[in-house]
C-alpha cells in the first residue's frame, strides 16, 4: 500500500469521524437542554427518572453503552441488527453526551442570580420569554468554557466507535497498521485528531470572543 492510498483511505475514515462528531453535537446539545429542564420538572417521577438516567450515563463507560445499544436489541428481543450499527452508535453517543451537557446547563442555569428572574417577572415577561430572552443567552456565555472541554473530549471519544467496528479513522489506523505492519497509520491518525482539535478549539474561542461584548 502506497503512502498516498493509505492517506486517502484514512482521510475517508476521518470524514466518518467528523460525521459522528457532528451528529453527536447536533443531537446532544439540544437534548441536553431538554434533559436539564426535565431535571427541574415539578413531577417527582420525571425528576427521578432523569437523575437515574444521568447517573447511569456518567457512571458507566461509553464503550460499554455503545455495545449495549448495538447488541441489546438482539439479546433482549432477538431482533436482527443488520443496518443497526450506525444508528446504535449515534444513539449511544448522543444520549451519553446529552447527559453531560445537561449537567453543564443545569449548573449554568442555577448560577443565574435570582434578580434576573425577578426583574423579568415584574416587567411582565412570561416564563418562556424570561428563559429564552433573559436567562438562556447569559447561561450560554457562562457555560462556554465547560462546553468547550466537553466538545474537545468528544473529538477523542469518537475513536470509541471502533468497538462497533465502524470504519472511522481510529479503526482504520488499527487495521491498516496490522495488515501493513506499519506504524505510519497511527502517526497519520494522531495528526488528524490533532488538527481536528485545533480547529474545534479555534472555533470555540471565536464563539467565546463573540460573546465577550458584555460581562
Amino acid at each position: 500500500m502506497t503512502f498516498s492510498t493509505m492517506l486517502s483511505t484514512m482521510a475517508a475514515g476521518m470524514l466518518r469521524t467528523c460525521g459522528i462528531f457532528a451528529l453527536t453535537l447536533l443531537g446532544s446539545l439540544p437534548l441536553g437542554m431538554v434533559i436539564a429542564l426535565l431535571r427541574k420538572s415539578r413531577f417527582t417521577v420525571v425528576r427521578g427518572i432523569i437523575r437515574v438516567y444521568i447517573s447511569i450515563m456518567r457512571g458507566t463507560p461509553l464503550m460499554l453503552q455503545l455495545l449495549v445499544w448495538y447488541f441489546g436489541p438482539f439479546y433482549l428481543f432477538g431482533w436482527s441488527i443488520r443496518g443497526w450499527r450506525f444508528p446504535a452508535m449515534i444513539i449511544g453517543f448522543v444520549l451519553n453526551y446529552a447527559a453531560y451537557f445537561a449537567e453543564i446547563y443545569r449548573g449554568g442555569i442555577e448560577s443565574m442570580p435570582v434578580g434576573q428572574y425577578e426583574a423579568a417577572e415584574v416587567l411582565g415577561y412570561t416564563k418562556t420569554q424570561t428563559f429564552m430572552r433573559i436567562i438562556l443567552p447569559q447561561v450560554i456565555k457562562r457555560i462556554m468554557p465547560s462546553v468547550t472541554n466537553e466538545v474537545i473530549t468528544l473529538v477523542k471519544d469518537t475513536s470509541l466507535a471502533f468497538t462497533l467496528a465502524y470504519q472511522e479513522v481510529f479503526s482504520l489506523a488499527k487495521q491498516i497498521s496490522a495488515s501493513q505492519t506499519s506504524f505510519m497509520p497511527f502517526v497519520i491518525a494522531g495528526v488528524f485528531y490533532f488538527i481536528a482539535n485545533y480547529v474545534v478549539a479555534f472555533a470555540m474561542e471565536r464563539i467565546e470572543k463573540a460573546l465577550d461584548y458584555y460581562r
Binding site: P113, G115, A119, V122, G124, Y125, R133, I134, P137
Partner: peptide, 26 residues
C-alpha cells in the same frame, strides 16, 4: 413597576435594548 436595590439590569442587552425589550415583547 419596581426598582431594585441591586438594579438587576439585563447585562447582555444594551441600555436601549433594556428599555425597549419589554415594551415590545410584553
Amino acid at each position: 413597576g419596581l426598582v431594585f436595590q441591586q438594579f438587576n439590569l439585563f447585562p447582555h442587552y444594551s441600555v436601549l435594548k433594556n428599555l425597549i425589550d419589554a415594551p415590545v415583547e410584553v
